[in-house]
Write a protein that binds this DNA or RNA. Structure first.
Lengths: 211, 211
DNA sequence: CGCACACTTGATGTAGCTCAAGCGGCGTGG
DNA sequence: CCACGCCGCTTGAGCTACATCAAGTGTGCG
């Protein structure tokens, strides 16, 4: 009996997660999106390896989120009954899941602040720092940290509640100001973290040891 | 040994919730807010009786949310060790908490869509319907459902990512268009739900049996 | 009675959106 | 191997929804 399974999805494909159980991203980058009939779209989160893809789905809740692979991805799915079993047998397991859910809630509150109250500049600065925080910087970042941006401009725009042109313009402006370089599509280089941090009015999770 | 305690707070007072345990709103209305050093503020949620006030706080996470009483409130606090005890003894208790957390996550995703992609009109329409959904409409709503709006315009504005004037103007406009009446401060009357629903591009939780 | 404060209304400003046009890299097919 | 066309990105010009600034209005409370 297979209790944990791995699945692959090509870029741009929808990722199937059961209505129950736990799905974890193993490789690649994904995004969770919510769309409206009239084409408007909100990217709720980008997901990196190690992230759970199912926290919005309760046992009964039918979530309106769609998971899409940004790059080719591998996901691990743990069947619902296995999760329940583990949860009943080891309380700490369930508590750990609960902790992940609480962190997600806390983070979503932060994102509401970004979408509700921040300027385009601030949103982009925060976005770049978030992406930096989830890249493996092998120790030092001096001399410029290279950040992978595998998603396209539209995904970034829909994540930040902006439009493509504004994202592009703001990135160009940062480049002109020497805050970043854009050597090739899908990549940004942050020479010095400090000025970006100065533009971002919130502290970014996972960026403690840097700057 | 008291395992569950009730506390009262006057309007505008901060509500103390422990860093752990479960706190439930029993009476009144509260809000969860996140503020920035420069006075910008995001109201993350309004809370009505029955709502949990602590879902953003994990066992370790230090949340940046502040809970404030909108009206005088009563809260019930269940101590952390009691929650943990119950969770370990009855798996379904923990699963129920997890379900609440998942619903919260799902709802927050929806709110991101509102703040990221919707017009002032749409935000206000959604807000009015949300508030309607949590008022006790004793059966029929024909002849006009009266909705309590105990929070002030600034709270509404900060909840919707707008400013006070835009909230006021949009409400006035709805009134002029006959969608609502504003008989006295702190109250709105929705004559017919259908036109408001038509303005709101999403389905509102808990509004199924109406309209 | 009159002050204070929440709300409304009006006039003006502007950040970001829309529309439209280039640019460039990459894959395809001749 | 090169030409072509597609598509993602950038850049520019002008517009608009909402913000900002500035008066009113009314209501409750001392």
């Amino acid at each position: 009996m297979a209790t944990i399974e791995a699945y692959h999805h090509p870029a741009s494909a929808e990722i199937a997660t059961g209505s129950d159980g736990v799905t974890i991203l193993a490789e690649g980058m994904a995004l969770a999106e919510r769309t409206l009939a009239d084409e408007r779209r909100q990217v709720v989160a980008f997901r990196s390896p190690g992230d759970m893809l199912c926290l919005d789905r309760g046992v009964v809740t039918t979530s309106r989120l769609r998971l899409v692979a940004v790059t080719p991805v591998t996901v691990c799915r743990v069947a619902a009954d296995v999760v329940r079993d583990f949860g009943r047998r080891y309380a700490s397991f369930h508590e750990s899941l609960m902790g992940a859910a609480c962190r997600e809630i806390s983070w979503l509150g932060e994102r509401l602040l970004v979408l509700g109250r921040m300027s385009a500049q601030e949103r982009i600065a925060i976005f770049l720092l978030e992406m930096l925080a989830r890249t493996d910087h092998n120790g030092a970042t001096d001399g410029g940290a290279s950040v992978r941006l595998p998603m396209n401009r539209e995904d970034i725009a829909d994540y930040l509640g902006l439009n493509v042109e504004t994202v592009s313009r703001t990135l160009s402006r940062f480049k002109r100001q020497g805050l970043i370089q854009l050597p090739k599509p899908g990549r940004a280089v942050i020479g010095d973290i400090a000025p970006l941090k100065a533009l971002a009015p919130i502290r970014i999770e996972g960026l403690e040891g840097l700057g």
